[in-house]
Computed example of a mutant assay.
Amino acid sequence: MSGHHHHHDFAGEKLVDAARDALVDAGEQWTDMRADVFAALAAREKPASAYDIAESVGLDRGKRVAANSVYRILDLFVRTNLARRIESANAYVANSHPGCRHDCIFLICDTCGAVTHIDDDSLTGALRTAAQGSGFAEVRPVVELRGLCSRCGDGDAG
């Protein structure tokens, strides 16, 4: 199994188009509400909770949006690879490459909350193998590393 996984990252309207295509290919509908939720999620630089997204979509629509409706949509997005859930923060990030399925390793800054994701199939593959060796099936590695990003850690040298 190769180490790093390479793919094409999308941004802006190309990301929205790729997400719509991936959702439709999965047999789901791209509704106005789903489009609004994805756009709000994709516009965020940091992970967002369902409440954050509900508030943002509600402001854009001019009416309150229930967080439980947003949770259902975000769960659909995670199942169909349009978004990733940051387990330790109960927050979500848009997947910048929705047509590509793989495990992500998230690097989360303790100071500013920024999230970077890296792909290393050799690491997540080893986790899958170890779990399967212990009798687990349908393993879905969730790897989150916490520390300081390069911006927040720069002043701490010495």
Rank of each mutant, 00 (worst) to 15 (best):
S2E: 13
H4S: 09
H5D: 12
H6S: 15
H6A: 15
H6V: 14
H7I: 07
D9K: 08
D9Y: 13
F10Q: 00
G12S: 04
K14H: 09
K14D: 13
D17A: 07
A18T: 07
A19W: 01
R20M: 04
A22E: 11
L23F: 06
L23V: 07
V24T: 14
G27Q: 00
G27H: 13
E28R: 09
E28T: 03
E28Y: 11
W30A: 10
T31K: 14
D32S: 10
R34V: 10
A35I: 04
A35F: 02
D36A: 04
V37I: 09
V37A: 04
F38M: 13
F38N: 01
A39E: 03
L41F: 03
A43H: 14
K46R: 13
A48I: 06
A54Y: 02
A54K: 00
A54M: 12
V57E: 05
V57Q: 02
R61S: 15
G62W: 08
K63W: 15
K63G: 08
R64W: 13
V65R: 01
A66P: 05
A67E: 11
N68L: 08
N68G: 07
R72V: 08
I73H: 05
D75Y: 11
F77P: 00
F77G: 00
V78P: 07
T80G: 08
N81P: 08
L82G: 01
L82K: 01
L82W: 00
R84K: 13
R85L: 01
R85H: 04
I86A: 00
I86N: 03
I86S: 02
S88D: 06
S88P: 00
Y92R: 02
V93C: 07
V93M: 13
V93Q: 02
N95R: 05
N95P: 04
H97A: 14
P98M: 00
G99E: 02
G99W: 05
C100A: 14
R101A: 08
H102Q: 12
C104A: 05
I105Y: 01
F106V: 03
F106Y: 11
D110P: 06
C112Y: 03
H117W: 10
I118H: 12
D119I: 07
D119G: 03
D119S: 06
D121W: 01
S122P: 02
L123T: 14
T124V: 09
A126G: 15
A126N: 14
A126L: 11
A126W: 06
R128C: 11
T129E: 09
T129V: 09
A130D: 12
A131W: 05
A131T: 11
A131H: 05
A131L: 10
Q132P: 03
Q132G: 09
F136C: 09
A137G: 12
E138S: 12
V142Y: 07
V142T: 06
E144G: 01
E144Y: 01
E144K: 02
L145H: 15
L145S: 10
G147R: 04
G147K: 13
C149V: 11
G153S: 09
G153D: 10
G153W: 04
D154L: 13
D154R: 14
G155K: 12
D156W: 03
D156S: 12
D156V: 15
A157H: 05
A157N: 04
G158T: 01
G158L: 14
G158I: 04
